[in-house]
Design a protein around this nucleic acid. Structure first.
Length: 822
RNA sequence: GCCAGAGUGGCGGAAUGGCAGACGCGGCGGAUUCAAAAUCCGUAGUCCCUUACGGGGCGUGGGGGUUCAAGUCCCCCCUCUGGCACCA
C-alpha cells in the first residue's frame, strides 16, 4: 500500500516492488457495491438539460443462465450510457425480466415445480450474472413481467385496447401446434413449424381472441420512415405488412345469381382472365359446385384441410385443383369462364379467390398449362419480345386485346379499368395487406390471464379495475389438454365468478396472453415502475420518451418490434403517450459465434459461459473483449486468445497507473498523444458501432506510456476517464489510486484541443502517376507551393520523373502530392 | 425467386476518394530463466531480382468503368449471411 495516500500536489514515489497484480476478483465487486450504495446511476425524472433513454431488450431469464451474446448489447449500451452521463446527460438505463413463457412451463410439466418458483430462481441467477459485469443500470427500476403489480397494468392496458374495440373473438383457422398444445401467431410459425421447439403446426378452426393490428397497418408502414433503424429491419417490417394496391372485382355467376369477389393487383389484365380459382375453404365452394363435380370437389377440400401449411408450401411447384362445374362471367369480355378450386389460393388473403390471368401470371400460367385452360395475351412489352406463349409475361407494357382499353400503358390501363369497374358498380380500387390480425390468446398456463368474464346474459364483460390483477390460479396439472382447452379450465373454482354488470353467475376466460404482451409496454413501466394508481405517469413519460437508443437482437424484427409499435400507437390514440413511435434509434448487435465460426449451441459444444470468463479474466476483460472483437452489428467468432489480449492490455494499464506520479506538466509530445487519444476514443463511441477503434486508441496510449517510469498525473487522470465506460472497475480503482474520491463515473468526459491533435510535422507521400515514389517530411502548415517544391526537390522523385515532362501537380495538403507526367 | 447486408494478411479487424493492413491474436527472432510458462523488446502482405545492401512488380471476391488518385463511387457477375417466399 502507498503511504501516505497520495493526493493532488503530493509527489510521493512508489517503487516497482510495491506494484500489485490486477486483482479483478477483489476490485470488481468492491466498485459494484459502491455504485449501488451511492446510487451513482440513478436517473432523475425531470431536468432542464439533455436526457437519454438507453434501453436494452430485456432478457427471458432461462434456466441456462446468461450467454456471452447477452453482454454484447448490454456492454455497448452501458458504454453509451456511461459516456453520455459523463457529458452531462441525464440517462435512464434500466433492466428487467421478460419472465412469462414456455420454458418455465415445460419445466413445470416435467417436474411439477410451479413456474413462479423456477422463474424466481432464474431471475436471481440472471441478476447476479448481469450485476457481476458492472453495468450501470438503475436497479431501483427493475421490473418483472410476472410481478402481480406488473400483470395488473398489463391487464389494465389490455382492457383499454379492448374498450377501444380493437379486440374481438373469432372462429378462425389457427396455427395449432399439437406438441405445444397451443395456437401460435403467424409470426411465431416458421416454415410450418413452431418458432420455439420446431414442432409441426397444423391449421385448425378455433375460437380465439384477435387484436386488430390490421387497423394500424398503414400507420405501422408509414411511420417506419422517420425511424433511425437499419434498412434491413425496416425492410422486414415492410415485407411483413405487405401492402399491395389493386382492385376488387365482382364476377357474376353464370347461373343462379350471386357473384364471386376477387382481389387483383393487375386490373389492367382483366380481359385476360380466362378462369377463376377459389381457396378450398371459400364459403361459396359448396353452393356453386355442380352435382357432377361434387365428389371430386369434396375429396379435394377434405384432402387440403388435412395438409399442414408446410405440406401446402411443399407443393408450390406442383399446383393442383379441381373444377367446380360452375361458370362465372368475365365482366370485361362478357364470356363465361370456369370456376375452379385450388389450394395455391389462400383463404386468408384478399377475398380468398382470384381471377386467373394465365398469360401474365406465372402461377396461373402453370395451372392453366397443367389443366389445359385457355391463355390469352392482353399485355405486350413496350419494346422487345414477349415471353408468351412459352412463359407468362408478367412485366408492365402496353395493353392489347382489351377492347376500349387497348393500346394503353399498364399503369394508365389499371386506372382506367378501375374507374370503369367503379362506374359500373362491380368493383373498386383497394389496398390489401399481408399482415393479418394478431392472434392474441394462448392455451397455456404461464401467462397473463385475460381480465374478461363470460356472462350468459351480458356477454363478455371486462373485469373492473378494482379487481385487477386477475392472478393465475393453482392448477393440479400444467399440461395443455388435447382438445385445446387451456390448463386454466382445470381450476374450476377460479373459473366460477360473478358478472361485473348483472352480478349473476359467470365464467372467467381461461386463455392466457402471449408473452409478447408484457414486452409490449415494459419500456413505459421503467419510467414509473412503482406507480400504484396508473401504469405510468404521463408527465414522466412525456419527459423520457421516445427511447433514444434501443439495442437488441435482430430476431425480434417482426415480432416484438411490430407488436410494441402497434400497442404504442394505440396508447398514443388513447392519449396515454405523447409520441407516435416508441423507439427512435434501433441497433441490432451481431451474433457471437463459437470458436468454430458456427452458431453457439449445446449440441456443438462451442458455448462460452460468461461466468467462466469473469472468474478467470474479470468483467472488465469480458466487456472489453466483446467490444474489441469488431463492429457491434457484425457477426463475430469468439476467440479465447483474444480475451487474453485485452486482459494483457488491462494489466499493462494497471501497471502504468501504479507507477510514480509527478504533477509536472506532461511534455508536449505526450500531451499531443493524449489529446489524439481523447479524439479517437470519443469518435469510436460516437459511431455506436466501432468501439473496437476506441480500445485500439487506448492501447496505443498505454504502449507509449509503458516506456516511462514516472507518469504525469494529468495524463493518467485523463486516461482513467477515457477508460471508465469500457473497463469501469479498473478505472475507478485507478481514480482512487490517483487520490480522488469516487467516482470517476461521475467525472466530466475529457475534451480535446484541436490544436494539439494536429501534428507539427507530417509525412507526405509523393506519387508519380499514382504510385508512391518517395516520402518527405514537411511542417504541418506548409502550403501547396511548399509541397510541390519539396516533392520536386526529392532525389527519388527526380529519378522517377527523369526525362519526362510534369504535366500536372495535385497537392492534397498534409497527405500527398501526385505528379502527372508524360 | 424476391428483399436487405457483407466479401481486406494465417485469424479478428483498421482506413473523411489521397501512403491499404491501425490495434489485437497467432507466427518468427531475441532478452529474461537452470529450463519452461509468464513478461519485455524486435520482426513480418505477397511474388520476383540481388551473396548482401537494396530494388522492382502484384495486391482489398471476379470483370469492366469514372478519376491525377478507387478497399471506398458507377455498371455487370460470383460467393456468403439474414429475412420473406404460391400474398393474386
Amino acid at each position: 500500500m502507498r503511504t501516505p495516500s497520495r493526493g493532488p500536489g503530493d509527489d510521493v514515489m512508489v517503487s516497482k516492488a510495491e506494484r500489485k497484480p490486477l486483482d479483478h476478483a477483489t476490485i470488481e465487486p468492491k466498485w459494484q457495491r459502491l455504485w449501488q450504495q451511492h446510487g451513482t446511476f440513478r436517473a432523475r425524472d425531470e431536468g432542464a438539460g439533455r436526457k437519454a433513454y438507453v434501453l436494452d431488450m430485456f432478457p427471458y431469464p432461462s434456466g441456462a443462465g446468461l450467454h456471452v451474446g447477452h453482454p454484447e448489447g448490454y456492454t455497448a449500451s452501458d458504454i453509451w450510457s456511461r459516456w453520455l452521463r459523463m457529458t452531462g446527460v441525464n440517462v435512464l438505463h434500466p433492466m428487467g425480466w421478460d419472465a412469462f413463457g414456455l420454458p418455465a412451463e415445460q419445466y413445470a410439466i416435467q417436474t411439477g415445480q410451479h413456474p413462479a418458483v423456477t422463474t424466481t430462481a432464474n431471475i436471481a441467477t440472471f441478476k447476479r450474472q448481469i450485476q457481476a459485469l458492472g453495468f450501470s443500470y438503475d436497479w431501483d427500476r427493475e421490473i418483472s413481467t410476472t410481478d402481480p403489480e406488473y400483470v395488473r397494468w398489463t391487464q389494465w392496458l389490455f382492457l383499454q385496447i379492448w374498450k377501444k374495440g380493437l379486440v374481438y373473438e373469432a372462429e378462425v383457422p389457427v396455427n395449432w401446434c399439437p406438441a405445444l398444445g397451443t395456437v401460435l401467431a403467424n409470426e411465431e410459425v416458421v416454415d410450418g413449424k413452431s418458432e420455439r421447439g420446431n414442432h409441426p403446426v397444423i391449421r385448425k378452426p378455433m375460437r380465439q381472441w384477435m387484436m386488430k393490428i390490421t387497423a394500424y397497418a398503414e400507420r405501422l408502414l408509414n411511420d417506419l420512415e422517420g425511424l433511425d433503424w437499419t434498412d434491413s429491419i425496416k425492410a422486414q417490417q415492410r415485407n411483413w405488412i405487405g401492402k399491395s394496391e389493386g382492385a376488387e372485382v365482382e364476377f357474376a355467376l353464370a347461373q343462379g345469381g350471386g357473384s364471386i369477389r376477387v382481389f387483383t393487383t393487375r386490373p389492367d389484365t382483366l380481359f385476360g382472365a380466362t378462369y377463376m380459382v377459389l381457396a378450398p375453404e371459400h364459403p361459396l365452394v359448396k353452393a356453386i359446385t355442380t352435382d357432377a363435380q361434387r365428389a371430386a370437389v369434396t375429396a379435394y377440400v377434405e384432402q387440403s384441410s388435412k395438409k399442414s401449411d408446410l405440406d401446402r408450401t411443399d407443393l408450390a411447384k406442383d399446383k393442383s385443383g379441381v373444377f367446380t362445374g360452375a361458370f362465372a362471367t368475365n365482366p370485361a369480355t362478357g364470356k363465361p369462364i370456369p370456376v375452379w378450386i385450388g389450394d395455391y389460393i389462400l383463404a386468408s388473403y384478399g377475398t380468398g379467390a382470384i381471377m386467373a390471368v394465365p398469360g401474365h401470371d406465372e402461377r396461373d400460367f402453370a395451372f392453366a398449362t397443367k389443366y389445359g385452360l385457355p391463355i390469352v395475351e392482353v399485355v405486350k412489352p413496350t419494346s422487345g419480345a414477349t415471353t408468351l406463349p412459352g412463359a407468362a409475361y408478367c412485366e408492365y407494357g402496353v395493353s392489347v386485346n382489351s377492347g376500349e382499353f387497348s393500346n394503353l400503358q399498364s399503369a394508365e390501363c389499371k386506372q382506367r379499368v378501375t374507374a370503369w369497374l367503379e362506374s359500373k358498380g362491380i368493383g373498386k380500387g383497394t389496398v390489401n395487406y399481408k399482415l393479418r390480425d394478431w392472434l392474441f390468446s394462448r392455451q397455456r398456463y404461464w401467462g397473463e390471464p385475460f381480465p374478461l368474464v363470460r356472462c350468459a346474459t351480458c356477454g363478455v364483460q371486462p373485469v373492473p379495475d378494482s379487481q385487477l390483477p386477475v392472478l393465475l390460479p393453482d392448477v393440479p396439472d400444467y399440461r395443455p389438454t388435447e382438445h385445446g382447452d387451456p390448463p386454466l379450465a382445470r381450476a374450476t373454482e377460479w373459473v366460477k365468478t360473478t358478472c361485473p354488470k348483472c352480478g349473476g353467475a359467470a365464467q372467467r376466460d381461461t386463455n392466457t396472453m402471449p408473452n409478447w404482451a408484457g414486452s409490449c409496454w415494459y419500456y413505459l413501466r421503467y419510467i414509473d415502475p412503482k406507480n400504484t394508481s396508473a401504469p405510468f405517469d404521463p408527465k414522466k413519460v412525456a419527459y423520457w420518451l421516445p427511447v433514444d437508443l434501443y439495442i437488441g437482437g435482430a430476431e425480434h424484427a417482426v415480432l416484438h418490434l411490430l407488436y410494441a409499435r402497434f400497442w404504442h400507437k394505440v396508447f398514443f390514440d388513447l392519449g396515454l403517450v405523447s409520441t407516435k413511435e416508441p423507439f427512435r434509434k434501433l441497433v441490432n448487435q451481431g451474433l457471437i459465434l463459437g470458436e468454430d465460426n458456427e452458431k453457439m449451441s449445446k449440441s456443438r459444444g462451442n458455448v462460452v459461459n460468461p461466468d467462466d470468463v469473469v472468474r478467470e479474466h474479470g468483467a472488465d476483460s469480458l466487456r472489453l473483449y466483446e467490444m474489441f472483437m469488431g463492429p457491434l452489428e457484425a457477426a463475430k467468432p469468439w476467440n479465447t486468445r483474444g480475451i487474453v489480449g485485452v486482459r494483457r492490455f488491462l494489466e499493462r494499464a494497471w501497471d502504468v497507473f501504479q507507477r510514480d506520479v509527478t504533477d509536472a506538466p506532461a511534455p508536449e509530445a505526450e500531451r499531443r498523444l493524449v489529446h489524439k487519444t481523447i479524439q479517437g476514443v470519443t469518435k469510436g463511441i460516437e459511431t455506436l458501432s466501432q468501439f473496437n477503434t476506441s480500445i485500439a486508441k487506448m492501447m496505443e496510449l498505454v504502449n507509449d506510456l509503458t516506456s516511462r517510469e514516472v507518469q504525469h498525473r494529468e495524463t493518467l487522470e485523463t486516461f482513467a476517464k477515457l477508460l471508465s465506460p469500457f473497463a469501469p472497475h479498473l478505472a475507478e480503482e485507478a481514480w482512487e489510486l490517483l487520490g480522488h474520491a469516487p467516482c470517476v463515473a461521475s467525472q466530466s468526459w475529457p475534451t480535446f484541443d484541436p490544436a494539439l491533435v494536429k501534428d507539427t510535422e507530417v509525412e507526405i507521400a509523393v506519387q508519380v502517376l499514382g504510385k508512391v515514389k518517395a516520402r518527405i517530411v514537411l511542417p504541418a502548415d506548409a502550403d501547396e507551393k511548399a509541397h510541390e517544391a519539396a516533392a520536386l526537390a526529392d532525389e527519388k522523385v527526380q529519378a522517377a520523373i527523369a526525362g519526362k515532362t510534369v504535366r500536372k501537380v495535385i497537392v492534397v495538403k498534409g497527405r500527398n502530392v501526385n505528379l502527372v507526367v508524360g
